[in-house]
């Protein structure tokens, strides 16, 4: 009897340990996010660092987001056409490409591409600063690392990713249009008219809200993993990998939650 109880306790402990570890990690991230948000509204504000972060996160991500969007829009048009032809619904290609890009693929793929590009670079940069004592140097120079490193990146990502998403939406819809008129024999004017008439403001708005949330998550994961990076090249490498994985998973999870909230049946 004692052996059975001991065995059960051991199994419960084995189950409980990872659960506790996950909860502790969630708690650490939540405290980190709360600290960053607390600094967001209190001076000093580092406008130069914010401007650089906008360039790094927003402007330099445009090519990768644009390329992802145009190929996705084109492929989506082909798939919808092929699927729609099974029940004689090929004509819905413009509408489905538009709604698919604006509500889902624009924000999610844009977010994931930014996660791959930006979360990794933020984590590597801040992690390297940590292991080379640059963050300690910031403190000795009377500069709060949260205000100087974290807040500008969080703010820049939250504000620029929606712009990237809007640009990606437009490019993705254009990709669908290009494939539609060149490969699927759609009339150009009809395709565009169907797209414009079908799309509603909230289709685009919901994607932009998702973009803002995804941008915040990407920067948060990059900054958190960078600031908590271990020592040496291995520590920075692990921080970089952790940032990309965590940001990607959080984007997909947040996307489901937001979709439930915005479009529940």
């Amino acid at each position: 009897m004692t052996a059975i109880l001991d065995g059960s306790a051991g199994a419960l402990a084995a189950l409980g340990r990872p659960v506790l570890a996950v909860l502790a990690a969630v708690g650490r991230v939540a405290i980190f996010a709360a600290t960053a948000l607390g600094h967001l509204l209190r001076p000093p504000f580092y406008l130069r660092e914010f401007g650089q972060a906008v360039l790094q996160i927003g402007w330099f991500s445009l090519p990768v987001v644009g390329l992802t969007a145009i190929f996705t829009g084109g492929a989506l048009a082909l798939q919808i056409y092929a699927g729609g032809s099974r029940f004689d619904a090929q004509a819905v290609v413009p509408q489905i490409v538009a709604i698919g890009m604006a509500r889902e693929l624009g924000p999610v793929l844009g977010g994931l591409m930014v996660a791959a590009r930006v979360a990794s670079s933020i984590a590597a940069e801040i992690g390297t600063m940590k292991v080379t004592e640059q963050i300690d140097a910031l403190v000795t120079l009377s500069t709060n690392p949260f205000k100087y490193l974290v807040v500008p990146r969080l703010l820049a990502a939250t504000l620029t990713v929606p712009v990237l998403v809007a640009t990606g939406d437009a490019i993705g819809i254009m990709g669908g249009w290009l494939v539609g008129i060149t490969r699927l024999d759609f009339n150009s004017a009809t395709y565009l008219e169907n797209t414009v008439q079908f799309l509603q403001a909230w289709d685009i708005g919901s994607g932009l809200v998702k973009g803002a949330v995804f941008g915040f998550l990407v920067a948060l994961m990059g900054c958190y993993h960078g600031m908590t990076s271990g020592r040496g090249a291995q520590g920075v490498g692990a921080a970089t990998k952790g940032a990309v994985v965590a940001a990607s998973v959080l984007i997909l999870a947040a996307n489901y939650v937001l979709t439930e909230l915005f479009f529940q049946a």
């Binding site: 000093p44 580092y46 650089q52 390297t128 600063m129 080379t132 004592e133 640059q134 300690d136 140097a137 000795t140 120079l141 009377s142 500069t143």
Partner: peptide
Amino acid sequence: MLFQGAALFDSLRVWENVAFRLLRG
């Protein structure tokens, strides 16, 4: 403070590193 590895900020020019405290705060 002079750090062991100097701990200069890679993204800033030399003069901006030296004048770091004089450019903010």
